[in-house]
Write a protein that binds this DNA or RNA. Sequence first.
RNA 1: GGAGAGAUGGCCGAGUAGGUCGAAGGCGCUCGCCUGCUAAGCGAGUAUACUGGGAAACCGGUAUCGAGGGUUCGAAUCCCUCUCUCUCCGCCA
Length: 444
Amino acid sequence: MTNEKSNVKESIFRESKVKAPLMLDARYLRENLEAVEARLKSRGEGVDLSGFRQLDERRRELLQQSESLKALRNKVTEEISRLKDKSQAEGQKAQMREVSQQIKGLDESLRQVEEELQNFLLTVPNIPNPTTPVGRSEADNVVARTWGEPGNYSFAPKPHWEIGEELGILDFERGAKLTGARFTLYKGQGARLERALINFMLDLHTQEHNYIEMLPPFMVNRESMTGTGQLPKFEDDLFHLEGVDYFLIPTAEVPITNIHRSEILKGSDLPISYVAYTPCFRKEAGSYGKDTRGLIRQHQFNKVELVKFTSPETSYQELEKLLGNAEEVLRRLNIPYRVVELCTGDIGFSSAKTFDIEVWLPGQNCYREISSCSNFEDFQARRAGIRFRPDEKAKPEYVHTLNGSGLAVGRTVVAVLENYQQADGTVLVPEALRPYMGGVEKIG
RNA sequence: GGAGAGAUGGCCGAGUAGGUCGAAGGCGCUCGCCUGCUAAGCGAGUAUACUGGGAAACCGGUAUCGAGGGUUCGAAUCCCUCUCUCUCCGCCA
């Protein structure tokens, strides 16, 4: 196995069709620098775009110099080719030798400037949508709606780790023995429950919500990770393989969105809706001591993910639908939840707008995130070069990409265990799930 | 892992003794004509990105024949490296 460490960096830019993708539209940026800066500021982190203008001007300057020399060379070269007697051209050849040297120098400078520009733009987050509430942190998120009533328990509801261990369906100690902290072994009906939920969700989304099922690779290359925005900024959160420059996916969003990287889609094919089950691998760096018990925060967990490619005009309608599709899972399972609209300070790097679905966990007496549904607008599409032609004749435009968990499976197990626990320590199986559990009505 | 073949436009497919090739031809597609309807037929058009000019329509420049580099006044065509695909052998779920 050969490891081309030296190629790792430049490989980001190795795209066949779209060369040097710019995250935020360079021309748009050029003309709206201040406005963009102001809007990015609402995310909380100070983004300084002042370096951009200089680099951008330098780039165009070099480009023009280089291109006019190339035009000259092309002209002279053509003249030479027309000559019958090539020996007449010695003078021109010598002159063009000189020109070619100059071009080489200019192109090298250009390459450097473009790389700088690129590296900078890759670290600039998406511009929040105007409808995203402005706020600093989680505390400023807005509850959009609540569904279901948290149940009344005649006993003190237990957290899922106690329920799972007592029923012998979750084994945290052996998970840690096999691998380490934040890994869990599911046993018997626990494993069955996880699998039932996966199938239930996939069936719901494919059969009733018209998503196309995909089963992608669970590890991807650097281009894919850059396309959706995990790289270059968040490499520390990813598991990287030794020997090959591949990463374990932190979410199916990465392989599924990248399916159409560097493609021009037909406008009539939009919206495209995919659903995929995959395991997800996350280092959870920086979350030491947080959610150390139970299934909430694992290095490996299962998720059913919804992904859409849409036209810019319809992306927010599609986001509503996607969110509704994810909510439907909890409604069918009859588990209370609420929908939260994230504020500018809390949305992810690539997102323009995000709704979280938070499920009610009686064992912990709180709502916990179980799904995150986002519209990335054209941010990922730009990075990944995903475009569409509105009409046969029309120029390609960037699509909007969206995705959302539909749902995080491990956390759904948590929700089922805690919401369906009985006084005697057993857990009822939600009715919608029974066909997927071989008719089993109760665990324990 | 060993041996060989290949990578050209939406698709198929020419082009490799370097020159006017962004690239023949066909299919598809778009517009127009024709036609009682359909089919066939005729004509025109049909890549992308960056960049200069323009309010715009549009006009000009540069680049792109898997990717990167080299030789040359000039490369789809020659040389080197890499990636991917296919065939055969080995190995393997």
